[in-house]
Simulated scan of single mutants.
Amino acid sequence: MGRLRSVAKRQQLEACLDYLREGDTLIVTKLDRLARNVAHLGQLVATLKAKGVSLRILDLGLDTSTPTGELILNMMGAVAQFERQMMLERQREGIAKAKADGKYRGRAPTAMRQARRVHELAAEGLKRSDIAQRLGLSERSVYRALSV
Rank of each mutant, 00 (worst) to 15 (best):
Q114Y: 04
L44M: 02
A78M: 08
M87G: 05
V118F: 00
G77R: 05
D32N: 10
M76E: 14
R105Y: 12
A78S: 14
E93Y: 07
L88W: 14
A80T: 08
M75W: 11
R92Q: 15
L58Q: 15
A96T: 13
G69V: 07
M75T: 13
F82I: 11
L44V: 05
M87K: 10
P109M: 04
E93N: 12
S54Y: 00
I72R: 03
A50C: 02
E83L: 14
A39F: 11
L73T: 00
S65H: 06
G102P: 05
L60R: 05
T68M: 15
D59G: 07
A98D: 11
R116A: 15
M76K: 13
K51I: 00
P67W: 12
I57L: 03
T64M: 01
E89Q: 15
L34G: 05
E89R: 11
L73Q: 03
A35C: 15
R33G: 04
P109Y: 02
R113C: 00
L34M: 05
A96G: 07
G52F: 01
R56H: 06
R113I: 09
R36P: 08
E83A: 14
S54H: 06
M87C: 09
R105C: 08
M76L: 15
A98Y: 09
P67A: 13
L41D: 10
G42Q: 10
L58R: 10
L71G: 07
G61E: 12
R117T: 11
G52N: 02
A115F: 03
L31G: 01
E120M: 01
R105F: 12
R36F: 11
D63N: 13
L34R: 09
D32P: 08
E89S: 12
H119V: 11
L44S: 08
E120Y: 03
L34T: 08
K49R: 10
L60D: 01
L31D: 01
R92E: 14
T47Y: 00
E120V: 06
R92C: 09
L60E: 03
K30Q: 10
A80S: 14
M86C: 14
R113H: 12
P67L: 07
H40Q: 10
R117A: 14
R117C: 06
K49D: 13
R107F: 12
S65M: 00
K49E: 11
G61Y: 07
Q91S: 12
A39W: 07
G106A: 13
M86Y: 13
T64N: 00
R107P: 08
A111Q: 04
D101N: 07
R84W: 14
R92Y: 07
A50D: 02
G52E: 03
A111I: 07
G94A: 13
V53S: 03
P109N: 04
M87V: 12
L44W: 04
